[in-house]
Design a protein around this nucleic acid. Structure first.
Length: 417
DNA sequence: TCTGGGGTCCTAGGACCC
DNA sequence: TCTGGGGTCCTAGGACCC
């Protein structure tokens, strides 16, 4: 059987885990730069929409006594790791799917046994980490997601765990689920399906394979089979990333090439660090600039860089990306966002040697030394000179909580009287 | 003043090979 | 007048997920 564990209002729950005085209170967590709402506790949902723009919602927050947090990825990442570790103890295989979700596999179990395992996971995550989770279990991943939706809708009745164990339960669940709530059916497909008078997940499974294949490609067909209880959407091995990106909006717009170069150099360097961390190399990168998405004249420019060989050197990557940036840069515009995306990624242990012009082998040693120092002394201690060493760019983070679990100076103090 | 970031998979079409 | 068949690789764009 396949299952999925999904943390409820994950970011908000992480904040609350260390602030028990906020139990039962409405909480929202904001995106980078305190831009918009990206997580809401159950109590906040009636008052704040997902994606609400923070600066326009200040009054709503105040009126409804909502506690606001800037996003604290150090905390969420560490809590996520702890959740995954607990799940791994109970299951035969685990596939972390996102920061707050993981699929798992159970071999040779009855639905009763599966339900019991689900309950144990739920209980231990709550006990150890103070995070509420919902568990859905069924014969396929798409059905497990469906079971998970049922839990989220009826947390009391299901006691946070639901198993679709019988054919009867499967049909009931499919008839209950609106088509737009099916995993893999987004806005566009919902519209297309509704025009075909498909309203429930069940209706979708009644279509013929040929029709689904023709109109929705193999992706749709796989989904259909999964919903029929024939597991078709595979269990993914954990693999290296095929794409690594660092992209940011600027707190204010920039128009000066020098300033933008500094930002882009920093993004390229950050990408290269992530690349080395997963022991990979890349042979290309994409660099882009965008004006304000909400402005009058929205414009974006971008281009691909080819390094000519696979590399993980911050120096090579940054240099290539900056050269391309200067090529495509257009004077006279104001830019709001920039980014670097590494592509053509391959493992560094299968490095293809070039007949002509491979990278200077000294780079590798230099990068190793740089990573080692930064790991020990703190991120960004050692930088490339094209990154600004005086000015430290700061995101707007007016409501940031401490790094309770990853920073010695932020560990909470408990007073025992 | 202020509007997020990071991923995956698939398809179509062009350029090229023999 | 007529113009084959079987491939690969790459890119751009679209859809989806969290």
């Amino acid at each position: 059987m396949y299952g999925i564990v999904d943390c409820n209002s994950f970011y908000a729950s992480c904040e609350r885990a260390f602030r028990p005085n906020l139990i039962g209170k409405p909480i929202v967590v904001l995106s980078n730069n305190d831009g918009c709402v990206i997580a809401r506790s159950k109590e906040a949902k009636p008052y704040v929409k997902m994606g609400a723009v923070a600066f326009k919602s200040k009054e709503d927050f105040r009126k409804n006594g909502i506690h606001v947090f800037s996003s604290n990825y150090a905390l969420y990442g560490d809590m996520s790791y702890r959740v995954m570790t607990i799940i791994s103890k109970y299951v035969d295989d685990i596939e972390p799917y996102s920061i707050d979700e993981a699929f798992f596999k159970l071999e040779n179990v009855t639905s009763q046994e599966a339900e019991l395992i689900g309950k144990q996971i739920q209980k231990e995550v709550m006990q150890q980490l103070g995070l509420p989770v919902s568990v859905g279990i069924a014969a396929s991943k798409a059905l497990a997601k469906l079971a998970n939706n049922i839990v989220k809708t009826y947390p009391e009745q299901t006691k946070n765990v639901y198993v679709i164990g019988t054919e009867e339960q499967r049909l009931k669940a499919l008839k209950w689920t609106n088509i737009d709530n099916v995993w893999g059916i987004g806005r566009k497909l919902t519209k297309k399906l509704q025009e075909m008078n498909i309203k429930k997940a069940y209706d979708f499974t009644l279509l013929s394979d040929e029709l689904v294949r023709r109109k929705f490609s193999v992706v749709g067909l796989r989904l259909k089979h999964d919903l029929e209880g024939k597991p078709t959407i595979g269990f993914e091995e954990v693999h290296d990333k095929y794409m690594i990106a660092t992209t940011r909006s600027f707190p204010n717009v920039l128009s000066d090439l020098n300033e933008i170069e500094e930002r882009v150099a920093t993004f390229a360097n950050s990408c290269a660090e992530k690349l080395r961390k997963q022991k990979s190399e890349c042979s290309g990168a994409y660099v882009f600039l965008r004006s304000n998405r909400f402005g009058k004249e929205y414009m974006k420019i971008g281009a691909m860089v080819h390094f000519g060989f696979a590399t993980s050197s911050s120096i090579t990557i940054t240099k290539g990306v900056l050269e391309k940036l200067r090529e495509i840069f257009k004077e006279g515009y104001t830019y709001k966002k920039a980014g670097v995306i590494l592509v053509s990624i391959s493992p560094n242990n299968s490095h293809q040697i070039r007949l002509f012009g491979d990278e200077n082998p000294k780079h590798q040693l230099l990068m190793q030394a740089m990573d080692k120092l930064n790991n020990k002394m703190g991120q960004g201690k050692l930088k490339l000179a094209n990154q600004d060493i005086k000015k430290t760019w700061k995101m707007r983070q007016e409501h940031l909580s401490p790094q309770y679990t990853t920073k010695f100076s932020d560990i909470i103090t408990v007073n025992c009287k």
